[in-house]
């Protein structure tokens, strides 16, 4: 009797989970398909009302316009480099900040934490930051893109609380076995923190991938600029007001700005979307914990 009851409740719950998740995915896939379809459709399809889930007519001029710029490959390389370097830096520094602050015995822990959290709420704004980067001699270098945002208070606190939620018994038993601090850090805490460090990597990588404002501000040389900035320019050029450019542009070719915008979006997000599946193995419940203990 009891077993039957339980399985009914469980089934209902699991059925609910599936229903909600399928509905959510459907509601997401519809606009995503629309974006992909518009990116490869001619203008008359785009301007017609209704959903465009699957392409009916093909027109790749949007993609042509994006890839016509030779600089786009340099920009891709810059973005990848920035993302890798920036993410590595963020993961290392975030962990270095979070681990000591997770120690409840740390003297003046609230003060040191407050010192960091305070920066979430008071910032000097654009002008002092620009002058700082300038006086540090970071203008026009990759460092101006990865250093200013190297640690996020938000992620640091998340990691700190994740570590403090780890079972203390593991650490204690290791200490009884005579393990040193470094050993505990490297062999116990680090592996256990993999899920949250994967999260930090993902958040940081996505942030770096999408960033463009800093590149615009700090990088003058077009060959050092990042993908999102170049793509923004392509979109802007393609949808420029003809009046701004003077007479010759008034002899319009049919403006197909939408397909180009969507093509730009597809080009810019496909690589970063592919990152997630590789991190997913760290989100499998309890794997890490099991492997450490085993």
């Amino acid at each position: 009797m009891k077993i039957k009851n339980r399985s009914w409740g469980d089934r209902l719950y699991v059925g609910f989970a599936y229903t909600v998740l399928i509905l959510l995915c459907a509601s997401i896939l519809v606009p995503m398909l629309q974006v992909v379809t518009i990116s490869m459709s001619p203008v008359e399809v785009i301007n017609s009302y209704g959903f465009h889930l699957f392409p009916t007519k093909f027109d790749f001029s949007g993609y042509e316009q994006v890839f016509r710029k030779s600089i786009i490959w340099t920009a891709y390389a810059n973005t990848i480099f920035r993302t890798v370097l920036g993410t590595a830096l963020t993961v290392v520094l975030t962990f270095m900040g979070a681990y000591p602050l997770s120690k409840k015995t740390l003297p003046h822990r609230p003060f040191w934490t407050a010192l960091i959290v305070f920066t979430m709420f008071f910032s000097g704004g654009l002008i002092p930051s620009y002058m700082l980067i300038k006086s540090l001699g970071l203008m026009n270098t990759m460092w101006s893109l990865v250093l200013p945002g190297a640690v996020s208070v938000f992620l640091l606190l998340i990691v700190r609380n994740f570590i403090s939620a780890l079972p203390e018994s593991l650490e204690e038993s290791a200490k009884i076995d005579g393990a040193g601090e470094l050993y505990i850090l490297w062999k116990i805490i680090m592996p256990l923190s993999m899920p949250i460090l994967a999260t930090v990597s993902l958040y940081s990588a996505v942030g770096h991938w999408n960033a463009w404002f800093d590149s615009m501000l700090y990088i003058q040389d077009e060959h050092k600029q990042v993908l999102q900035l170049i793509l923004r320019r392509i979109v802007i050029d393609g949808t420029l007001d003809p009046a701004a450019g003077g007479g010759a542009d008034l002899i319009d070719k049919p403006v197909n700005g939408e397909s180009m915008k969507m093509a730009t979006l597809v080009v810019s997000i496909v690589p970063i979307i592919c990152v997630y599946p590789f991190l997913q193995k760290y989100f499998v419940k309890g794997t890490m914990l099991g492997s450490v203990k085993g």
Partner: peptide, 17 residues
């Protein structure tokens, strides 16, 4: 060379510096 769409942001910061 400044980004024509973010002209004000960029130019004003440079002026300030």
């Amino acid at each position: 060379y400044v980004d024509t769409q973010q002209w004000n942001d960029q130019v004003n910061v440079k002026f300030a510096a």
